[in-house]
């Protein structure tokens, strides 16, 4: 599609063979914002229908993983948490990691999972990944209730000292996590159209990635060396550290790597959206 022009109430779309170059088509996505909202709502409605605990799972998941981390990394391995109470450290970290990993996993199979829908009706395909991403952000919002409860206790007892002034920055960090996850996800989705086996790689890869990110440990625990450099290059690392610094008052922030992380996020989003839009135009012929 080359151009969408509206002049004096008349409308023109031209459909042409695949053309070169980048097309994000974000304007069109904006026109379908109601669909994004409806799909997000539908995902919640459908996921928790006919389950026993329903939306309580949104809170239970990070609670259970935090307890496991407390046992494994706290009690057994005795990995430090930079002075932050363990339960709070693990809960905040795994909730934030969940935003990234859920955005990625939910989108890694976009084309194959929606082949039927995409094969029958046109709408901007990015609607699906964006709504999946919103689902992960909303889940984090719900988990914040528990985080807030824990924080009240620890702030009153004087065990943590959050940087309240910077709290307005938190939504930006969460959105960055979600966008980064979605970008990786749709990039993988574009490749899985051709190579289905990449999906298995994703399942394993996301676990490895978590340990290459300071989720169950702070970066300050990591000794200098090659491994630390690799972890610092990981774009999720600085987001986690900045997030904990603001929310919990402890974190090691390196401005250069923060800039790198932000740059990677923007670049990756642009590339992945363009690749996704390109694959979308002919994927119906391959799936």
């Amino acid at each position: 599609m080359k151009s969408v022009t509206e002049y004096g109430g008349s409308y023109h779309v031209q459909l042409t063979p695949l053309e070169k170059g980048f097309h994000l088509r974000l304007k069109e996505l904006w026109q379908y914002r109601d669909l994004v909202r409806l799909m997000t709502g539908k995902t919640f409605a459908v996921t928790y229908q006919q389950t026993f605990l329903g939306p309580l799972w949104i809170i239970l998941n990070p609670v259970v993983s935090s307890l496991i981390y407390m046992f494994l990394f706290g009690y057994v391995a005795q990995v430090g948490t930079a002075g932050i109470p363990r339960i709070l450290f693990y809960f905040v970290s795994s909730a934030a990691w969940g935003v990234f990993s859920a955005s990625m996993i939910a989108n890694a199979n976009t084309f194959v999972a929606n082949a039927h829908l995409f094969g029958k009706v046109y709408f901007p395909r990015l609607v699906v990944p964006v709504s999946n991403m919103l689902v992960s952000i909303i889940k984090f919002g719900i988990q914040l209730i528990i985080i807030a409860g824990l924080m009240v206790a620890y702030v009153l007892s004087g065990e943590i000292h959050p940087l309240w002034v910077y709290y307005p920055l938190l939504p930006i960090l969460i959105v960055q996590l979600a966008v980064l996850g979605m970008s990786f996800g749709i990039l993988i989705a574009s490749v899985t159209v051709k190579y289905r086996d990449l999906l298995s790689v994703v399942a394993v890869g996301i676990n490895l990635w978590m340990y290459a990110t300071p989720v169950v440990y702070p970066i300050s625990e990591m000794p200098n060396g090659v491994i630390r450099t690799i972890i610092m290059i990981n774009p999720v690392t600085e987001i986690m550290e900045v997030l904990r610094l603001i929310m919990l008052g402890e974190g090691e922030v390196n401005p250069a790597f923060c800039a790198l992380s932000a740059g990677v996020t923007v670049l990756l989003f642009v590339i992945s959206a363009a690749v996704f839009n390109r694959v979308e135009r002919t994927f119906a012929d391959t799936v």
Binding site: M1, S10, H12, V13, L15, T16, L18, K120, R281
Partner: peptide
């Protein structure tokens, strides 16, 4: 015509 897939050659104009 319904934009499910792209043409290999040629052009479609929809007004």
């Amino acid at each position: 015509l319904s934009r499910i897939t792209a043409p290999t050659e040629g052009v479609v104009d929809l007004y």
